[in-house]
């Protein structure tokens, strides 16, 4: 039983955490792709930017969360979401839109987004330094230990993890309702289906583009902040996020928001399972195993230093066997 709780804490919880983060990032990537038709490589840095803005606001008002009983960083989220969205729209207007209007190939926009990546990274590190900082300024992270009857080891959940799960579920439901029920959400899907016809129908495509950046920027802020809350804010956060969120978006089928959610959890769990040390689970069986089988101490598929290999191989496997993604994306 202890082993199962261990498995729950280190795989189910950890996998759901990474899965939620990747899912929210991948939704942004896939939405931007379906509306603007290019792979937005600066997306992971937008997540860092969102978290960084939360960090700034938390440093400025360290006690704002106390009256609400929430971490200050969570209270600052809406403001940071607005600021990140503004930044995203601004970046689009200044850098991407002129290129789009010039009719460049999508790959040029990809390179432009690499340029934006460098600018954001440079700016964030210029102000934050390169070290890690906790988003819990003047406060302590709450940790919940749920005792399971008959077992010594408790289930461990932290406050940011619970907030993360609630926020992820809420944003996925909200996004679903927005895309299927609201006029603008439908227009967004229409534009991703057929941009020329959307224009010919009188849909204000500029508005849709702006909206896309706002949604992507907001989700990026949520994901980046909640990840930083769970561990710590690091300026090179984006470095570890870029490949997984793109793998998630492609696995889910590019242009397919709910595929991106599924892809995010798939990549998140695959990573967690790959670095999990399986010999822990087999330990209770050790005494009953025949003596010629020697159980190694380390039965992890890959070491944590090679975690990046997991999303990469998922990506490669999908590109080889099913380039449209598991849920049949629109565009390959």
């Amino acid at each position: 039983m202890n082993e199962l709780i261990y498995f729950f804490n280190y795989v189910v919880v950890a996998g759901s955490v990474t899965g939620s983060i990747y899912a929210m990032g991948a939704i942004g990537v896939t939405l931007i792709y379906s509306i603007l038709r290019f792979a937005h490589f600066a997306h992971a840095d937008m997540m860092t930017l969102g978290a960084f803005l939360v960090l700034l606001l938390t440093l400025l008002f360290p006690h704002a969360g106390e009256p609400l009983g929430l971490p200050t960083a969570v209270v600052m989220l809406p403001i940071a979401m607005v600021l990140t969205s503004l930044a995203a729209v601004g970046i689009d207007r200044v850098f991407y839109q002129p290129l789009r209007n010039h009719g460049v190939k999508p790959i040029v926009l990809v390179i432009a987004s690499l340029g934006v990546t460098l600018m954001l990274q440079g700016l964030i590190r210029l102000f934050s330094g390169t070290g890690a900082q906790s988003l819990y300024v003047d406060a302590r992270k709450e940790i919940f230990r749920l005792e399971v009857p008959g077992v010594t080891r408790p289930i461990i959940l932290t406050e940011p993890q619970i907030i993360l799960f609630v926020v992820t579920i809420a944003s996925v439901i909200a996004l679903h309702l927005f895309l299927t029920r609201s006029r603008l959400g439908k227009a967004m899907r229409a534009m991703s289906d057929n941009p020329d016809l959307a224009r010919a129908s009188g849909i204000n495509t500029q508005l849709i583009v702006t909206l896309t950046w706002v949604i992507a920027g907001s989700l990026a802020t949520l994901a980046g902040t909640l990840l930083s809350l769970d561990v710590a804010f690091k300026p090179d956060l984006s470095f570890f996020l870029l490949l997984p969120i793109f793998a998630a978006a492609i696995v889910g089928g590019v242009g397919h928001p709910f595929g991106a959610v599924a892809g995010g959890f798939l990549v998140g769990f695959a990573e967690t399972l790959a670095v999990f040390n399986w010999s822990v689970l087999l330990r209770p069986l050790r005494d009953s195993l025949p003596s010629w089988i020697e159980l190694p101490n380390n039965l992890a598929l890959v070491g944590t230093e090679y975690k990046i290999v997991v999303p990469f191989f998922i990506l490669i496997a999908v590109l080889i066997w099913r380039p449209t993604g598991l849920f049949k994306g629109k565009v390959i």
């Binding site: 006029r183 439908k186 227009a187 229409a190 289906d193 016809l197 129908s201 009188g202 849909i203 629109k330």
Partner: peptide, 27 residues
């Protein structure tokens, strides 16, 4: 109003949503 020869619908949208998009300016 203009109906192109090809690509004249939104394939992943339902019929009803296609029609709604036509009235985007007059909801």
């Amino acid at each position: 109003g203009f109906v192109p020869q090809e690509k004249n619908i939104f394939p992943s949208l339902s019929v009803e949503e296609n029609l709604e998009m036509g009235a985007f300016l007059k909801p």
